[in-house]
């Protein structure tokens, strides 16, 4: 692999209770590599104390979400050339709206807990989250086959959401999208949870979630759809049919 570009990686550092700072590393990179590769090389060859989360390196696990030049990115599928020019600075920060564990690692516990709470299904029938390309549509007999859900629970949408920034109790785009994927289906507990001031009505339509989602979930559309479901359920209950 030819490392033809020179970039400066500016990485957010924070250990324990110490005040945070940035460390910079000059790095030779191949522009077609991914941002995560560059970060992993810093750890492998320059600074073994750097901590960052990662696992699958191909966007199925959702572990490596970070802010790259202030934009939420899944770093394992973000080519370096898409975020910086030769000789440029690549600033890497941990995601917002989650507590920082250390350096680029954040605690996603609240997200995972809430995803369980709303019953987001991790595998579901193929037909439920259809393929975007007509050629990729499954054969009709395969619609009941199972596949892993679109949402990889990376937390990028929550980091990007301006409402989550000011209101920690807001369930957040991924969680509301998870509730929509589960469907209300007369689930009263779920209805109470999402039909609250921490739920669907807290969204202020900035659509940042959909802009940063790396996994085709389109949380904004799902939140709007969930609102429709909530109103439907409320009307049905008002007329005693819920």
């Amino acid at each position: 692999m030819i490392n033809e570009w020179k970039i400066t990686l500016k990485i957010y550092r924070q250990k324990g209770q110490e005040p945070p700072h940035y460390d910079t590393f000059e790095l030779e990179v191949n522009p077609d590599e991914y941002v995560l590769d560059a970060i992993e090389r810093v750890w492998a060859f320059r600074d073994r104390s750097l901590t960052f989360a990662h696992a699958c390196h191909h966007s199925t696990c959702g572990a490596c979400g970070m802010r790259v030049n202030d934009v939420e990115k899944l770093t394992c599928i973000t080519p370096i050339r898409s975020v910086v020019a030769n000789g440029g600075v690549l600033k890497v920060d941990p995601m917002r709206n989650f507590p920082v564990v250390s350096d680029l690692v954040v605690d996603l516990g609240s997200l995972y807990q809430r995803m369980d709470q709303v019953g987001h299904r991790s595998v579901l029938p193929l037909g439920e989250e259809p393929a975007p390309h007509p050629a990729a549509a499954p054969a009709p007999e395969d619609l009941q086959a199972l596949r892993l859900a679109d949402c990889i629970e990376c937390g990028l949408c929550i980091s990007a959401c301006p409402v989550a920034t000011t209101t920690p109790a807001y369930l957040g785009p991924a969680v509301l999208a998870g509730a929509q994927q589960h469907g209300l289906n007369g689930d009263l507990k779920l209805l109470e949870l999402v039909d609250s001031d921490s739920g669907v009505w807290r969204c202020h339509s900035a659509f940042e979630c959909t802009a940063v989602c790396p996994s085709n979930v389109d949380p904004a559309r799902r939140i709007m759809d969930l609102r429709r479901q909530v109103i439907g359920a409320r009307i049905a209950r008002f007329f005693g049919r819920g």
């Binding site: 202030d70 301006p162 000011t166 339509s205 659509f207 940042e208 802009a211």
Partner: peptide, 18 residues
């Protein structure tokens, strides 16, 4: 936290509307 609403970095159209 209110000033963070107006954080102008990197925003998409939806955020500018917001």
């Amino acid at each position: 936290n209110w000033p963070k609403w107006f954080d102008p970095r990197r925003r998409e159209a939806g955020s500018w509307a917001f």
